[in-house]
Amino acid sequence: MTWHWSSLSVVLAALLLSPLLLGIIPRVKAWFAGRQGQPLFQVYYDLAKLLGKGAVYSTTTTWVFRLGPLLSLSTIAASLLLLPMLEFPATLQFSGDFLLFVYLFAMARFFAILTAMDTGSSFEGMGASREAIFATLTEPALFLSLATLLKHNGTMSLSEVFLSAAPLTGTTMILIAFVLLIVLLAENCRVPVDDPTTHLELTMIHEVMVLDNSGPDLAFITYTASLKLWITSNILAQLLVAPFPEHGALLRPLLAFTTMVLLAMLVGVIESTIARLRLIYVPKLLVGASMLALLGFTIAR
């Protein structure tokens, strides 16, 4: 177990900048729609506003409903400690850290589902059910991608994957990157898996799960969503940036951040150009991603 205190700056950056990343997507979508769109910092405004509001709780709910958002946020935030940023290894590094990292996500999801189910609403139940199924199918893809990366670099720690002398390149990298992109879309409930902006509860996943949350709780949930986007795009960005040669300690991390912004824009582009998949096709997409990851694993050396 190793501490890298300097990496706390990366964690701080993530905590501060992640709402920005979330704000880019609607902006891109607005561009595509020919509108001006909301300010880039809209998410910050939203968060501040929500934190300043009172709250309404359903009479059905219990302590689970109060605890869920807090626990989700703190687990996701804690997982930042395990996330490296190229030259900045994770704050807390040990072999097998990636497992804890993935399972912290699962933990957050578990409590998000429970929070939704606590309301007794069938809409939220529906959303929770879908969240569970898509997460189930995403995990093998994620793990297979990780297995490919770890095997390629011969390491058991996330921090060493992107720092190795011979990072993953070529076809395998493209495959894995594609898989990770799908994972990103699924984890963050984006088109084509989910449409966060739809107006029909029956078709939503993430948004429908939080129908009954309000005030600070909703702020925490939104912030959690932004952190998730940050983290997933971060990993993908590192994968893409890793092959670039190293020039100074900060260059590649900055490049990676730029990539993350580009990825957020890409998500916006995808959301603008592609329709949401019918729910019964989503499993095919996710299983397909797993297959691609398996293919990547097979051809990787």
Partner: peptide, 17 residues
């Protein structure tokens, strides 16, 4: 923190939406 935030504000009770 949440407790602090909600301390002075109105916390409503309602049926599930």
């Amino acid at each position: 923190w949440r407790k602090y935030l909600l301390n002075k504000r109105q916390v409503g009770k309602a049926v599930t939406w």
